[in-house]
Amino acid sequence: MNRLATILALAAAPALADPDPEALRRLVRQDCGSCHGMTLKGGLGPDIRPAALASYQRDDLTTVILDGIPGTPMPPWRPLLSEGDAAWIADYLLRGDPE
């Protein structure tokens, strides 16, 4: 399947739904955690705890999540996440997890 088809196939379902905090928190820990570490302190990818992201605006971070950073392993999550989901994750990362 080419990428466009993947995007069309996968974007349809989540696009209109409200962000599901439980599922997104899990996604951040488990799946972003594949590269950034389950505690988000970094791994192959950089530290993404609040102090490390201090220079990012919410919208910029949302864009990075949706479109990735070309030339690096940071992939575009747009095929899997709505803009609302990505903005929720950006807020969550900038705010930090109260746990």
Partner: peptide
């Protein structure tokens, strides 16, 4: 000749 898909896990 094939587009690389996003890599969500190495």
């Amino acid at each position: 000749g094939r587009e690389g898909l996003p890599v969500y896990k190495m």
